[in-house]
Each structure stands twice: as C-alpha cells, then as structure tokens.
Write a protein that binds this DNA or RNA. Structure first.
Lengths: 212, 212
DNA sequence: TAGATTGTTAATCGATTAACAATC
DNA sequence: TAGATTGTTAATCGATTAACAATC
C-alpha cells in the first residue's frame, strides 16, 4: 500500500495460482511446504517462488520452509480476498447471466449485487437471486450504495457509453468481458477477459508447433 | 508449420488483438496503416508491431505501410480462423451453457456441436440450438465425428476423469474454465481461463498501487 | 528523385534462474 | 551442532525498444 517498490504484473498474476495450490494443501492438512516441493507441484522454479513471495515479505523460515496456513492467509491479504467487494453486472446476455449466477465468487468475498440491461425483453427476468434491472436505473442504484467493480458483458458498440456511465458513478474497477479494449482514465483498474482472443490463441496452438 | 523458429507465447497472445484492430479498420474502410499509426491506436510501440509481424513474414512495404485487408487475412490464417473447428462443451452449468450459446464463436469458425453433463436434472434440457446430452454418451458422440476442442466447465473434482476421457477420444485441444490446472500429455494443447484468478488480480489492483 | 516506412540488427531493459551466505 | 532451506545478490536469458540501412 504505497510503500514504493512496484511489483510487476507477472508476479501478481501468479499469486492467485499460489493461493489455489495453498488452499488445496491446506485442505489436505499439509502443514508446511518448502519452495522446492511447491515448485515440483506447480511446475515453476523454487527460485521464482522465493523471489515472488519476497516481494511481499519474509513468510518462510530457513531450514523449515513455509507454513501453509500462514502463507495462504498472507497471499489472501495481499490479493484483497474477503474484503467484501460489491459487483454489478452490466449486460444480461449469456455471459452476464452466467457470471451473475456463478457461486464461486461469493465464497471469496465478491458479491454480485445487481444485474442491468437495456433490453425490455430481459428486464425483470430473474437471474439467480437477482432480477435484471433497467440500465436507466443504474444511477439510483449505485448512488445509494458503494459498488467496487462493474462487470462489462455487453456488445462492443455499447461499451464506450456504458464505461462513461459507470466511471461517472465512481466505480473504480472494471472486469471487461466485451470484445474491445477500454480507454479509461489511469485511476480506473481494468482486467480484461477476452474470450475470443483466448480461443484464437488455442486455435493457433492447435494449428502450429507447440509454443512455450 | 514446423519451419523451425519458435515464436514466443507473448507474441501469439498479441495476434488476436491485432486481428481485432485490423477488423475494425477494415470495417471503417481504412485501406492501409503504418506501424506508427497502429502503434498509437493500440498503445504499444511501432517497433513491437514490426517485430511481431516479421515473425511470420514480410507483410508490409517500405514507404507505404501495411495493407489492412491483406494483413487482416494473414493474421487470420496464422491464427487458424475460419478453419471450422468443432467444439464440445463438458459441463452444462452456468458457464458451460453461456459458452454453448455464445454466438461470436461461430462467426470465427468455432462451432459448438455438443454439450454434456452428468446431472440428470439438466440432461435433455435445451441450450440454444443444442440439447444437453448425457456425459455417458460422449464416447459414441466423439467416435462418430471429429472434435477439435473440448471446453471444460465442470467442478474441480470431476476434472481429472473428464480430461482422461476426452484425451482418450482423441481431442487435442482443451479450453479450460475449471478452477484447477490440467496435467496433460505434451501433445495436448491447453488454454486456461481462470475466472476467479482474473477477478482476484483485479481485486489486487484495486487494493494496491497501480501495477504496470 | 525525395520522403516515408519497412525489415532487421543492435542496445536496453526486465524477468527468470542460479548461487550462496545467513539462519533456523 | 549439522542439515535444511530461506532470503537475497549475481548471472543469465528473453523480450522490448531503439536505430538505421534497405527499399518502395
């Protein structure tokens, strides 16, 4: 939190993976693990594990390794797990509805509190515990509570206006499932999930020599 | 296709993005573009664009730039777009159903030809143009046609057995939406979409200083 | 021909890996 | 204490950027 040293995105993206492996170890009652053992499980070097973790603190102990529970909790803290974020889903199409109903997010403290669309045919329709609301009511909705993340699951052509709207309402994080890149102010954090890009990458791997 | 020089995954992952920008230019009737102009649009260096493209051939012309239509088609070829892949979805939960109904894939030649589940409550249920089939029928289904990609959208605990099954049936590509990493033979191509990891990364960005 | 812009080599930067002293 | 394993510095590797000769 503002202590200067900038941590690279490559490191950050590995943290959730560490978190998953540690959770599994914890569930299997493994109390401690060395960077070498973890390295074998995760198919990365022990050196990288130690380097990654030391960006955030000294969580291990010489001659012992890492306490699984402690490390799991520390990484959770770093990632902001369990801080009870509020999410709204913009777009009640296939993807939007699926995400709104997805239960794994809630477990980690990511609560989806609303889903919006501009299509009268879906407004009012139940989606899990929620009901699709008119996008026109977004202002009132967000105004009355704090929303941390907007999930964008709308067609490309609607993206710029939707983005302006949610940013104006003070939402600071965007989880972007749309097919376009966002051009947002620097204080807005964006995480893209470009599904078609991902599928095309797989398609490339299939039609060409293996890539590293 | 086996001409020796290995292209890094970092480059490959940028190709779908180039493809999107070129498609947009094409739709806007832009006939040609220089690496510098494209660089400004995409927020990457012109140098990187030229380096990336030259991994695959000399698509530009000195003093002119790149022909948009030609470059779009070339990148499509490299990525294997339009080669009419067959996909099956394993798991008819929220995500599985959403992906099965997602229309953007078909446009690029990725045809979803079946969706399977082991839950009697959803078997037989219509999903878009498809009907959820019993996972037990997977063998017959795949045996009678060629399937290129299996989309894994099932709970972690079912992943190992499902993976063994689809690999035994000769499927060479796995698009993995499950929460675990796959341990597959080297000739199987895997592309992961770890949604929770992605959300946790966003969560990190929100609770810490901006990352590059 | 002159101007523009590529293709490509060379320089830089950052990330990964190796090595080892510190220390539990 | 001896053995194990971290934290951390140094070396290596790869990816990005800069520069420029080739050429349209």
């Amino acid at each position: 939190m503002g202590n200067g040293k900038q941590i690279s995105l490559a490191v950050i993206r590995r943290l959730p993976r560490y978190y998953r492996y540690l959770q599994e170890l914890l569930e299997n009652n493994v109390g401690r693990i060395s960077s070498m053992e973890l390295s074998a499980k995760m198919n990365i070097t022990a050196s990288q594990i130690r380097q990654d973790l030391n960006n955030f603190g000294c969580f291990g102990q010489q001659g012992y390794g890492y306490n699984v529970e402690l490390l799991f909790k520390e990484i959770g803290k770093i990632l902001g797990v369990g801080r009870d974020y509020s999410l709204i889903v913009i777009g009640a199409g296939n993807i939007g509805q699926a995400l709104a109903k997805y239960e794994n997010f809630v477990k980690r403290g990511y609560n989806i509190v609303g889903i919006f669309d501009n299509n009268p045919a879906v407004i009012g329709k139940p989606v899990g515990r929620l009901v699709v609301e008119d996008i026109e009511k977004l202002d009132d909705f967000v105004g009355s509570r704090s929303v941390d993340i907007a999930v964008l699951a709308i067609p490309s052509k609607n993206v710029p206006s939707a983005m302006r709207k949610i940013i104006a309402l003070g939402v600071k994080g965007i989880w972007n499932f749309s097919a376009v890149d966002l051009d947002a102010p620097p204080d807005i954090e964006i995480e893209n999930v470009h599904l078609t890009d991902s599928l095309m990458t797989l398609s490339y791997k299939l039609s060409n020599e293996t890539v590293n």
